[in-house]
Every structure is written in structure tokens, then in C-alpha cells.
Amino acid sequence: MFRINHASNRIVKLKEVSFSELGFTERHHLQEWLANQPDALGEELLIIQKEFDGFDDTRERLDLLAIDKNGNLTIIENKLDDSGKDVVWQALKYASYCSTLSKSQIAEIFQKYLDKARPGQDAKALICDFLGQEEFAEVVLNPGNDQRLIMVAAQFRKEVTSTVLWLLKHRVFVKCFRATPFKDGNDLFLTVEQVIPLPEAEELMIGISEKEDEEQSSERGQATRHQLRTDFWHAALEALRTANVALYANVSPSRDHWLNAGSGTSGIYYSMIFNRDETRVDFALGTRSKEANKALFDHLFARREQLDAEFGAPLSWRRMDDKKVSLIECAAPFDGHDRENWPVMIDWLVDHVKKMEKVFDKEVPGLRNLARTQFSKEAAA
């Protein structure tokens, strides 16, 4: 690293120092820096735990546990001036331990971290925001054997680099970063450089294999989910037709996890939801105006007790101020991916679609007028 001297139009080399010279430690310094600035590792990562020790029959603990943008668990191992000869073996062990973690366990691990580091925040909501998903039920975490390894040190031994390159050829996703401190008077600097694979060679070394694996895995997973959903909607729509429920008469089966039916007013509609762990019916207020949707929701919410009574059970009223749409819902837990549960699930859907339409169909004309009034106000503003 060089300092630029504008006056002399020269560059001056800064002194490279060691972490031990500066009195820095792995746990209290390097680990903390990366935990609070994970993009120093060249990508967006969500740190979900530090010093994670949730392994059975062992007292070992990994430095940092993170989620990447594809929902893969990422194990980050930090060393200081020397990687040591066993860091790869150590990281591989941790990856094997973490490979069995379920989505709910990962959310629980993250929640414990938040409760200690940032009280009051919800792990599932932060994971959804990070991965760009609306609902935690749709989030996929820690799929298959795609756990990733990131190792950070000032210097890597030859036996480490040789092993890492071999692992990369066998589609184990490993990265090595060199962390180097510099000193300029009283000022300290740090560079974090990816050294394996070299950034310009990364696409050649692992990009193709990642893409192939990802596409194959994604295609297989999507094909399975899409077929499952299509089959379920075929059965559900047939049951609605048999029960003389006309609301979905003009709706075709879909590979999506939802099916919408119009109310006769644009932006106001009914939904059936088919998730892995629940099925749900919604009355959605999703006109082109967020303000209008909140006004429509508030109009109905003012008579919440009456509408709940007409439905026959308490509904879930979700104004969702941070979203454009507002929802009124009723859900029931089911293992939706077990076809043996489908008859009961579909009976539940038929019954609750009827109830939802009966309660809210008569509300639609008033909502339509209220929406028009709101649109006029916004146009005049």
C-alpha cells in the first residue's frame, strides 16, 4: 500500500506490520471488524452468529457464521499472521457440522445472536429482507451440501493453498482472503484481498461449475415444487367446482404458490395460498395506491369485531405499513408437501373461501367508492 504525496507528486510505501506487533487479536479485533463489515469479503453476507458452538458432543466453535444471497451457510474462519496448517480441516469440520442445520434452527441461531447484539429485531424478518422474499415460508436456507468456506489470514501456508485449490476443482466453494495491516505514523490501515481464487479467475475456476450445479439443483427443485403446486391447484379447483363455489370458476391451475380471484373491482381480490407449512385464504387490498389500500383497510378494520363474527373466527388483520398491499387472512398449519394431507387441506380451503367471499363480497361496492374518492384526492393534491 502506498500513500500519495500530492505536493511532491510521489508515492510513499507504507510500512507493512503484523497483527501481533499491533497487539491485535483474532477474536476481539479481526473477528469484530468482519462481523460488522462483512462486505469487506467482497459480497453481501448476513452474519447470523459469532463464536458459534451449537455442535453436539464437541466444544469446538467457529468464528463467524453467515448466510449468503443464495441462502447458503457460509463458515468464516479467521487467523492472524499465519493461517496454520489445520485451518482447512477445521473449516471443513464446521461445514459438515452445519450441513444438518434446518431452516428453523438457523432462524433460532440468528435470533439468539440478535437478542444479545441487537435486541428487539426479528430474525425471520431480517432473513426475508436480506434474501428478497415476502414470507419466511418461501425462504430456502442451507440447501443440500452447498455450505461455503471463507478463510482469512495475513499469510497462507503452502499446504493450505494446495488443499484449497484441490477443493475448488471438486466444487467445494472456498475462498481465501489475505488481511494485511499497515502503519503510517499513528494511522493504521487494513487491506483485505481475495487471493484464492483470484477474482479475475474465479469465474473460470468455479463459476461454470457453480452455474451448472445451481441450474441443475434449481431446475430439479423448481420442477418438483411447480409440479406439486400444479397438481394441488388442479385438485383444489375441482373441489371448488364440485362445491358450486364460482369465485375461481375462470381461474386455471398454476405452478405458483398462490391463486388469485377477482372481486369485480381492480386491485381488490381474493387469494388462496399453498405453502410448505400452511394453507391460507386472503382478502387483499392491492390497488395502485398504497394510501388508498391503507384507507380501505382502516375502513374495514373499524368493524373488525363484526366482520370476524360474520366469518366465524378471528381473522388476521395485516395493515403492513411498509408494503403497498394490505391483507386480511385466515391460515391453518399443514404439511403441504405431503400429498396425503391434501384432502383435508382442500376441504379447509373450500370452506374458508366460501366464508371469505360471503363476508367481503358485500363490502366490495363500498370499498370501490372509497377507493375512487381516495384516487380523486390524490389526483387533486
Rank of each mutant, 00 (worst) to 15 (best):
F2T: 15
R3G: 07
N5P: 04
A7S: 10
N9L: 14
N9T: 12
K15A: 10
V17G: 04
F19M: 05
F19T: 02
L22V: 04
F24P: 00
T25E: 08
Q31S: 12
E32G: 09
E32P: 04
E43W: 01
L46A: 06
L46Y: 02
I48M: 00
F55Y: 09
D57T: 09
R59C: 08
E60D: 13
D68H: 03
E77Q: 07
K79A: 02
S83N: 05
S83R: 00
D86T: 14
Q90N: 06
Q90R: 07
K93N: 14
A95G: 11
S102F: 05
K103Y: 05
K103R: 09
I109W: 01
L114R: 02
R118L: 13
Q121L: 15
Q121W: 10
K124F: 07
K124M: 08
F130P: 01
V139Y: 03
L141S: 01
D146T: 14
M151Y: 03
K158E: 14
S162G: 11
L167G: 05
H170K: 15
V172M: 10
F173W: 14
F173S: 12
K175C: 09
C176I: 09
A179I: 09
D184L: 06
D184K: 06
L188N: 05
F189L: 04
L190A: 01
Q194N: 03
A201H: 12
E202M: 02
G207E: 02
I208M: 14
E215Q: 15
Q216I: 10
S217V: 08
R225E: 11
R225N: 10
T230K: 15
H234M: 09
A236N: 04
L237C: 00
A239V: 05
R241M: 10
T242I: 13
V245C: 08
L247D: 12
A249K: 14
N250T: 13
S252L: 14
R255W: 11
D256H: 13
D256P: 06
D256R: 14
L259E: 03
G262F: 04
S263E: 03
S266M: 11
M272A: 09
F283M: 00
G286M: 07
S289N: 01
A292P: 00
A292I: 02
A292Q: 03
N293W: 01
D298I: 02
D298R: 00
R303W: 01
L307V: 02
A309N: 10
A309E: 11
L315D: 00
D322W: 12
V325L: 10
S326N: 01
C330M: 10
C330Q: 11
A332H: 12
P333E: 09
D338R: 08
W342L: 02
P343E: 06
V344M: 12
W348S: 02
L349N: 04
L349V: 08
V350G: 01
V353L: 03
K354P: 04
V359P: 00
P365M: 03
G366A: 15
K377P: 05
E378R: 04
